[in-house]
């Protein structure tokens, strides 16, 4: 499934980041987020707005379009 389908409050493991914009991928890497990281969806803003996410106790925001391209699996 993709990150955009994850339920609010649930955690999943990132399995594929290759579909996203390289700039975004680089920035996620800077934040220490890569394949294998455990990611949790805190909030989803309305009208396909941004996503508030959490990895390793740090919160960050991402667009719907990007979340749609991140493959995750619930463990």
């Amino acid at each position: 499934m993709t990150l955009s389908e994850l339920e609010e409050g649930l955690q999943a493991r990132i399995i594929d980041l290759s579909g996203i914009n390289p700039l975004v991928r680089r920035r996620l890497l800077d934040l220490g987020i890569l394949e294998g990281s455990m990611i949790r969806l805190i909030h989803r803003l309305p009208l396909r707005g941004a996503f508030a996410l959490e990895v390793n106790h740090q919160e960050f925001g991402l667009r719907y379009a990007e979340a749609k391209r991140i493959e995750v699996e619930v463990v």
Binding site: N21, L23, L31, Q58, E59, F60, G61, R63, A65
Partner: peptide
């Protein structure tokens, strides 16, 4: 055409 990047840190 190329998509923009939006990743923002949400500090405590």
């Amino acid at each position: 055409e190329d998509q923009s990047a939006f990743v923002i840190e949400l500090p405590p």
